[in-house]
């Protein structure tokens, strides 16, 4: 039976948005509690092995404390530095181990760094961050059940997951980073507190899609009147000036009017150069890349981003799997 991977980010849910956008601190003990519920559900499905990324807080260790489960747990043998790269390296190792899926605990930022290296391994992202578009607000037990079905039935690719697009950031011809939701170009000159909630600083927004229900600068896409057929597609928005403006939730509790100069559907595999330099790129809500005066940075939409477990489908399969198991046990 294939195993399940777990990457829990101890740093999510504590940034400046607690001061400026009514966010609340997401305590790591609560993340450990969520993981306990994941483990209990996985165990009930007879999952034999769970592979866990060690982290500076020890979320996995705390989750296993006093937990009565049969499954075996393995902590990856890797150095932990308390930085984003921990999650990227862990995802790479888990993909190489061919785990059935990776359950992540974090926000958009956590999933972004995991998606850099998880390849075709489907993600099951549980939201424990602030402004989340990519991860799901899902109860740990339910997530465990869905992951249990994926592992027990060894489901792969399109059979169980939906492929999400990603935005790729190129320095000349070299891929330097990715984003799963949005890339925002702003006039900041420092990463500072990282979260970007200042609408007056924004030049441009690149989106993987403009579906309603987003929070953060990606919500600007849904607020624009585009044809429904275009909703699932990428978008490029120039901010400032113009005759149009839209009201969008750019962070929890922060409703802002955003002036729009122009916008267009972003076609896949068409590279768009960033025209503003020096400037700063926020990837999925966090300031990440400073662009120097002479750097040639471009953005490209690629439909072949990470796979994300289709929860409804997985739960239906889980139901059938459990019923079958139950009947079998009646026979014996």
């Amino acid at each position: 039976m294939r195993s399940v991977g777990i990457i829990a980010n101890p740093g999510s849910g504590k940034d400046i948005r607690r001061l400026i956008a009514c966010g609340s601190v997401f305590d790591n003990n609560e993340k450990a509690n969520i993981l306990k519920r994941v483990f209990l559900a996985l165990d009930s499905f007879g999952i034999e092995k769970v592979v866990i990324m060690p982290d500076i807080y020890g979320i996995g260790y705390h989750a296993l404390e006093d937990l009565d489960v049969h499954l075996s747990t393995v902590f990856l043998d890797m150095a932990v530095e308390g930085i984003q790269d921990d999650s990227t390296r862990a995802a790479q190792i888990m993909a190489d181990m061919d785990v059935a899926c990776i359950i992540t605990l974090g926000g958009d930022g956590t999933n972004r760094v995991v998606a850099k290296s998880c390849g075709d391994t489907p993600l099951l992202p549980i939201s424990t961050g602030t402004n989340n578009v990519f991860p799901l607000m899902i109860e740990g037990t339910i997530a465990g059940m869905a992951a249990g079905a994926v592992a027990a039935l060894s489901l792969k690719g399109e059979d169980i997951a939906i492929r999400k697009p990603r935005l790729e950031i190129y320095d000349d011809t070299t891929l330097i980073d990715v984003a799963l939701v949005d890339v925002v170009v702003s006039d900041h000159c420092f990463a500072g507190c990282r979260a970007n909630c200042d609408e007056t600083s924004v030049y441009e927004i690149y989106l993987t899609n403009s579906e309603p229900g987003h929070i953060g600068f990606s919500a600007v896409g849904a607020a624009l009147t585009v044809a429904d057929a275009d909703r699932g597609r990428g978008m490029h928005i120039s901010v400032g000036g113009g005759n149009e403006r839209v009201l969008a939730p750019i962070a929890p509790g922060m409703m802002r009017w955003i002036p729009i100069r122009s916008y267009q559907i972003l076609e896949p595999h068409k590279s768009l150069p960033i025209k503003f330099a020096p400037s700063f790129l926020s990837l999925d809500g966090e300031r990440e890349i400073d662009i120097g005066k002479d750097e040639k940075i471009s953005i490209l939409l690629n439909e072949a981003g990470p796979y994300v477990v289709d929860i409804q489908k997985a739960l239906l399969m889980a139901r059938d799997y459990v019923n079958r198991l139950d009947k079998l046990s009646d026979l014996t």
Partner: peptide, 19 residues
């Protein structure tokens, strides 16, 4: 028993941030 002391402040309902 915890790493982020911000949680202690949050327990009093005080907005807290880690930087």
């Amino acid at each position: 028993p915890l790493k982020d002391m911000a949680s202690l402040a949050a327990g009093y309902g005080m907005p807290a941030v880690v930087v």
